[in-house]
């Protein structure tokens, strides 16, 4: 037995002090309160705000049927279709851009220095704020959905590539070796060795990104890059609540349907069907 026998009293004294936790919590609260005080200025928002909120909420309860039933290019169906088209094409083109980058960034496909170059390109593309792409593409191809598609494509590259790199690096090299041993050509190796291993992961990633893109497509409208966003923001700005309501309704339904579809397919893919 050693001299320092463990005693209840000795262990009691070792109980970690709580004050560091309280200090951190207190600082956190103080920072939040201080900053909140900085941001909130109660000059006349109370009464006007309450009245306004009432008007807005009542207005939102009466969606404009005219907008919902309108099939022309200012109607709801057309705008939703345009939003969906932007998101869809953005995902497809994003995939086309991301595929080579992802393969070249994977350690088990390309040499180290190629990995670094491609990973750097992906990081740069990702770090640049996506609304800046939108603004710049509007400069390049003019306002409208074309600029939106370009923005979405570039905006999708980062995440798609990142997730694909993970699944490429997780590939089982044994299968390629086996095909090599069987004397398969490079084409056959890709067809029977790589595609079956990756396809379900990639499809799942792409569908997930499509889901995100549809949600984000609203933002494009703000800078004139197409989609339902422009009309929606405009309607809110004008205080046209029935139109706002109709568009919100359409948007919510579309996103929910897509989300549902996306989770279902991804669940199926994850279970290996």
């Amino acid at each position: 037995m050693t001299q320092n026998k463990i005693t209840v009293d000795g262990q009691y004294r070792k109980y970690p002090p709580l004050w560091p936790r309280y200090v951190i919590e207190a600082i956190g609260c103080a920072v939040i309160l201080y900053l909140t005080n900085d941001i909130v200025s109660f000059n006349g928002i109370n009464e006007r705000g309450a009245a306004m909120a009432k008007v807005v909420l009542l207005g939102l309860l009466k969606p404009s049927l005219a907008v919902i039933l309108d099939t022309s290019s200012v109607g709801l169906a057309y705008m939703l279709m345009e939003t969906l088209a932007i998101a869809f094409l953005g995902t497809i083109f994003g995939l086309i851009l991301a595929l080579p980058l992802a393969f070249l960034s994977s350690r088990n496909v390309a040499p180290r220095w190629v990995n670094y170059i491609c990973l750097t390109i992906i990081s740069i593309i990702r770090a640049f704020p996506s609304f800046m792409y939108a603004i710049m593409f509007v400069k390049v191809v003019g306002t409208g959905p074309f600029a939106g598609v370009l923005t979405m494509s570039i905006g999708s590259v980062g995440m798609l590539a990142k997730l694909m790199i993970e699944s490429i690096e997780d590939m089982n090299p044994g299968i390629i070796e086996a095909l090599d041993a069987a004397g398969c050509s490079p084409f056959e190796k890709i067809r029977y060795g790589i595609i079956p291993q990756l396809s379900s992961n990639i499809v799942s990633t792409v569908i997930y990104r499509l889901d995100i893109n549809v949600k984000n497509a609203t933002i494009l409208g703000v800078v004139g890059a197409g989609g339902i966003g422009a009309s929606l923001i405009h309607a809110i700005g004008q205080g046209n609540w029935p139109n706002t309501s109709a568009m919100l309704l359409g948007l919510i339904v579309m996103v929910l349907l897509l989300e549902n579809f996306s989770t279902r397919i991804r669940k199926k893919l994850a279970m290996g069907e």
Partner: peptide, 19 residues
Amino acid sequence: DKIKALEALDKVGILDKAY
């Protein structure tokens, strides 16, 4: 409370593992 908890650990012989 802490003393009571430590005594309980002592009773089952694992006071040294308290932390």
